[in-house]
């Protein structure tokens, strides 16, 4: 058997521990799809795989037990999924065009969850369209609110939904529900002054707990949606660490641009000898210095007026090397 493993990896197959058998990696950007594609996945697993499917950590399906010679047939069967999920593809019928940049993940977001501050899946799909296909190792993850159920701080780019709570004092019934919710469930940004809540703008994380708690619509959400962008969280062997807040109250357009700009930065500075052409962005930033990254990332970005850039940004985590 003669197989180009470099090529098949980029085609979203895994070289498995079992000789002769690959695993097909199906991505679901934003974590949601029409249920009908489950039948396609079942069909691939039962026709060419070993009849099992692994639900991956990155919101995909890994179909193991596929003989290498069956990869073209599997790619054919993947076509309706690739098209249906709106994945950018270079050659029709030949499967995924790259696998370096990982599936863009999202929690269920505001289409299901009351806490969600935006449609996470819709934003994840926009990001998918903007950055795929790409061989560089980027991990982007979206979560609807500061609860961070999607664990975005374990990713190169984490996007956390925020809303600027709007207070209409004429509708306040002084029930104290917002102050209690903010104190018990969030960051104690509200205090009571003259029977009404007073918001500490510096402390507020835009989680929306006050809006959810208010029984009389005295608190409502801002018309515009805002986000917190966390950067360079990672797992791994050398120095796993949590992503840190970089820009708070940022908008959608700026996030898309910053992530795209970062690809240019990585192309310029990635270690040419990085194994498999993969290097976590954070290690590159450690070499170039944060200011150099910032220069590239913020190129042609117009942040909203309310955006706050955290400076300097420090990471810690566990250091093994």
């Amino acid at each position: 058997m003669d197989i180009n493993t470099k090529k098949l990896k980029k085609n979203a197959f895994r070289v498995t521990k079992e000789r002769g058998l690959a695993a097909s990696r199906v991505r679901v950007p934003g974590g949601r799809m029409e249920a009908k594609y489950l039948a396609d996945i079942q069909n691939i697993a039962e026709t060419y795989g070993n009849g099992t499917v692994h639900l991956t950590i990155r919101q995909g399906f890994e179909i193991p037990g596929i003989p290498y010679e069956k990869m073209p047939q599997v790619n054919q069967l993947l076509q309706p999924i690739i098209e249906g999920l709106g994945i950018n593809q270079e050659i029709e019928g030949e499967g995924y065009s790259a696998s370096g940049t990982r599936n863009v993940m999202a929690c269920v977001g505001n289409s299901i969850c009351p806490y969600g501050c935006y449609d996470t899946t819709a934003f994840a799909r926009k990001m998918e369209k903007a950055i795929f296909p790409n061989d560089l190792h980027f991990k982007v993850c979206f979560t609807g609110c500061s609860n961070d159920c999607a664990k975005v701080r374990m990713h190169d780019f984490g996007i956390i939904g925020m809303t600027i709570p709007q207070f209409d004092s004429n509708r306040c019934v002084s029930c104290g529900a917002c102050v209690k919710a903010c104190t018990k469930k969030s960051v104690s940004a509200l205090t009571s002054v003259n029977y009404r809540p007073k918001r500490d703008e510096v402390r507020c994380i835009g989680c929306g707990e006050c809006v959810l708690a208010c029984p009389n619509m005295a608190w409502t959400r801002s018309q515009k949606k805002y986000y917190k962008l966390t950067i360079f969280g990672r797992t791994g062997k050398k120095n796993p660490r949590m992503g840190q807040d970089w820009i708070k109250w940022i908008d959608e357009e700026s996030i898309l641009k910053i992530v795209q700009n970062t690809y240019d930065y990585v192309k310029e500075y990635i270690d040419p000898n990085a194994p498999g052409g993969k290097e976590h962005i954070g290690y590159i930033v450690d070499r170039t210095g944060f200011e150099e990254f910032k220069k590239w990332a913020l190129k042609d970005v117009t942040l909203p007026e309310c955006a706050e850039i955290v400076s300097p940004v420090y990471w810690n985590g566990i250091k093994y090397s």
Partner: peptide, 15 residues
């Protein structure tokens, strides 16, 4: 209709 004036994001409030 108060657009996006609902309790949950992307929801309206009729009042």
């Amino acid at each position: 209709c108060f657009e996006n004036g609902g309790r949950f994001s992307d929801t309206d409030c009729i009042r």
